[in-house]
Nucleic acid binder design. Structure first.
Length: 469
DNA sequence: AGCACA
């Protein structure tokens, strides 16, 4: 050819993990593209209905070799690639990745991420979820969990087609009222695709099921949620006592830091661990004592009291299901006071930014993003490598403790999927007096571990001298 | 049947 500087179409294309497909049906769907291409590799993105006739599309594989596989397969196949009987012409794209504004959740897969809006985790049982989604085909696995986005479930079907049918039918719809507790008014399902292809379910429990493996062991601690609630003398539900307190903070006008909580709760005994997290825009915390008695004393004394004067940061306390928190030893969201001081010091120095908090940006900027929390509730989640292709915010350090299955909202396993869980939330630059007040009566907290966050001159709370573990 | 601007 004399046109040496001209781009030749057919023979000069260099391989790309993006393929250009032509002669598709004008209304070809992402799912049809995936069905055609997935035998050759993992599809990470698609763009269909491209061009004036809407009959072109792009498909991006995770790996270049997968795209090469597909092109070379159909180059030598006697059966052409087809969608609905139409021959599809496949070439390497002249771009190296698909650029569109499609979020990862729009890339079809066999696993759905379902956010159940307007309910607490206890309102919708895994059996109800199973029932609803089984209408579209065999549900292989379910994992549920709570994150900032609310109550969520990963639902695994055997194939993309079934998953997309369920998504089409149920996205934006509600779970029938008769399947829900009476107090639930609305319950919308928001459904996107998960990047997972195979959930790693370790136990049958109230939050996860593997219907392909009925002999999977039942996790006794994870099944606690199925036990009948303890009923008190007044006939009302009463949670079993625990050495771990669950605190929800109302009227969060000012920042409540780990140090503030530690000071407040240390008045009643050694505080072993603390974690702060946000759920549905509400600040919550877990405080772990060595024993139930201490926790009960703290609960009785602090319930309904406010950390700051003026009704700010009012504490509501209940017993947690947890008995041993699995927290990062030293972060702005959690603290483990049981780790040896030497290693803690090392960690403090490693992250000096936590030790002497400067004035950081505004903490009141809405709920913390816990991101796309997919795998967080699946212990030992194995398919993390698949997620990393689109997760923009891998967790630095990943210093969670993978050995213990204990978990709580906001706390993640080492999975990078839940990377957002440690989003920076600055310790309080608040100049508030650190009082516990109750209907006019107030008392100050003494011996603040970080004097910079609290004013001097407090008097000890009645009865107990604070001590620190 | 021949490369997208969301």
């Amino acid at each position: 050819m004399s046109t040496s500087g001209q781009q030749q179409f057919r023979y000069t294309q260099t391989p790309s993990k993006v393929l250009h497909l032509r002669n598709l049906p004008w209304d070809c769907s992402d799912e049809e593209l995936v069905e055609l291409c997935k035998p050759f590799g993992k599809i990470v993105n698609t763009k269909c209905n491209v061009g004036a006739n809407r009959n072109q599309a792009f498909v991006e594989f995770a790996d270049l070799n997968q795209a090469i596989n597909m092109v070379s397969y159909y180059a030598s196949s006697s059966e052409p690639a087809q969608v609905r009987g139409k021959t599809v012409y496949i070439q390497y794209s002249n771009r190296n990745e698909i650029v569109n504004n499609k979020s990862p959740g729009d890339v079809p897969g066999n696993v759905l991420l379902v956010t159940i809006e307007g309910v607490e985790a206890g309102d919708v049982s895994i059996d109800v979820i199973h029932l609803v989604f089984s209408a579209f085909g065999f549900v292989q696995k379910i994992a549920t969990f709570e994150k900032a986005a609310g109550f969520q479930a990963l639902i695994q079907f055997s194939d993309v087609g079934t998953a997309s049918a369920a998504r089409e039918a149920l996205d934006g719809r509600s779970i029938p009222k008769y399947l829900l507790p009476e107090h639930v008014n609305h319950c919308h399902l928001r459904i996107s695709y998960s990047a997972h292809t195979d959930l790693n379910i370790k136990f049958q429990s109230h939050r996860s099921r593997d219907y392909t493996n009925p002999y999977l062991p039942v996790n006794p601690t994870a099944m606690e949620g199925l036990l009948q609630p303890v009923v008190g003398p007044d006939g009302k539900k009463k949670e079993p006592e625990s050495n771990v307190l669950f605190a929800s903070l109302e009227n969060m006008q000012y920042a409540v830091t780990i140090d503030v909580l530690h000071t407040v709760f240390s008045a009643f005994g050694t505080v072993q661990k603390i974690a702060i997290f946000e759920k549905n825009g509400q600040t919550q915390a877990l405080i772990q004592y060595p024993d139930v008695t201490t926790a009960a004393a703290a609960k009785d004394a602090l319930e309904g009291h406010c950390i700051y004067d003026g009704g700010y940061c009012k504490l509501h306390l209940s017993y947690s299901r947890h008995t041993d928190l699995n927290v990062q030893a030293y972060s702005d969201k959690s603290r483990d006071y049981t780790v040896p001081e030497s290693s803690l010091l090392a960690m403090q120095q490693a992250s000096a930014v936590h030790a002497t908090p400067p004035v950081w940006h505004n903490p009141q900027s809405g709920p913390q993003s816990f991101g796309y929390a997919a795998a967080a509730a699946v212990p030992g989640q194995a398919s993390t490598s698949q997620m990393s292709s689109w997760n923009p915010n891998l967790q630095g350090g990943g210093s969670t403790f993978p050995s213990t299955p204990t978990r709580f909202p906001g706390q993640s396993y080492a999975s990078p999927v839940s990377a957002y869980a440690t989003a920076v939330n600055p310790p309080g630059s608040s100049q508030q007096t650190n009082h516990i007040v109750s209907s006019g009566r107030s008392y100050s907290v003494s011996q603040p571990p970080h004097p910079s966050t609290m004013p001097p001159g407090g008097v000890p709370p009645p009865g107990h001298a604070p001590y620190h573990g």
